[in-house]
Design a protein around this nucleic acid. Structure first.
Lengths: 188, 188
DNA sequence: CTCTTAGTGTGATAAATGTCACTCTAAAAT
DNA sequence: ATTTTAGAGTGACATTTATCACACTAAGAG
């Protein structure tokens, strides 16, 4: 059963009884997408926070000149969304697109709140996720403050060696904030 | 009473009874620091998460060459710490230093956990803080991906006009990841 | 098989930013 | 009153990175 992946994921942080997990999993819906499909499109409402069962996504911000910047990648056992638009129920400013065929579990904001209010364990789980999400973002900011493009690339290779093999270098460049030509000239 | 500032801050997110607030405030201790003093020093354990009653702090990461990078500023009604070191009870990799005389309320990790476990309202409060903390960091990443140094400076001026007046430009440069000379040449 | 497309590499040049050296001003210290 | 120090501005030059143009390869579509 696909939902077991979610259970194992949550139980890395808080233990659950069978009843509790049944209650939790009743709030998720399952969806499948093909490579190049969009889960979220800029300008549209953001219905779900996504837990990724398999596959690979990119969260993209498109600037005024049409250039695409990758805010984050997301793969198995990661959560992803345009979280600001989701949390405030406003229109998406980013898009979420498949780099591979992807299967997800979907959670609406109403159900997110319901889970938090009903099960303190789930609120604890989401607090832990939010704290580590913040720390990951802070780590990326520090990488930017302290390192040039090549060093940031090397740090990325070291931190996510598996991810790198699944993502075209041009996309890594859009994540690192460097042109694909410059990235291509790094010997590493 | 100084603690009233904390109460008003928490009640922006969750309402509290007098008893609840009394219980909460019993877990904080009050401290005062002078300009140039350190609340956290690199290599030392991180005892507290700080709620700032008044004053101004900078969170600084010092790289291998001794160059100082400002990870964040923090002023009244903000929370600050070397959160990774605090949360994992490891040694600080950053330092937290006063840019002005500063008064804070201090919360140990044990008490943070106790508050979360005892009062779901407080867990809810910290979840909200963590989510918005993450979104703030993500916003800064997007600013970096999409904008050059001058545009990032202008965005900072627009987003935190009050902060800018209290911080020397050389420190803003260290926050923006640009040399003070380059920042000085921007006409804005 | 041929054609198209995505991904990549690379040279030439332009633009942005860093570094070093020096100056100036105003506030703080003595 | 003077000396010191922090903060800021600027010129000259070096370095990093972006941009544009083009070539090459491999995988997928017809």
């Amino acid at each position: 059963m696909m939902q077991e992946k979610l259970r194992a994921h949550i139980e890395q942080i808080v233990p659950l009884t069978d009843d509790e997990f049944q209650f939790i999993s009743d709030h998720f819906t399952n969806k499948k997408y093909k490579k190049h499909q969009f889960l979220i499109q800029e300008g549209q409402p953001v219905k779900y926070h996504y837990f990724i069962l398999s596959g690979l996504l990119k969260l993209v911000y498109t600037d005024g000149t049409g250039k695409q910047h990758i805010v984050s990648f997301a793969m198995e056992n990661w959560w992803e969304s345009d979280f600001y638009a989701y949390y405030t129920q406003t229109e998406a400013t980013m898009s979420l697109e498949c780099l591979e065929d992807t299967e997800v579990l979907c959670l609406t904001l109403a159900d997110y709140k319901k889970l938090c209010d009903t099960l303190p364990k789930m609120q604890r789980f989401f607090l832990e996720k939010a704290n580590f999400g913040f720390l990951g973002a802070q780590r990326r900011i520090i990488s930017w403050l302290t390192s040039n493009a090549q060093a940031r690339y090397e740090q990325l290779l070291k931190q996510y060696p598996l991810l790198i093999q699944r993502v075209p270098k041009s996309q890594l460049a859009a994540y690192l904030g460097v042109s694909r030509e410059t990235l291509s000239r790094f010997t590493s």
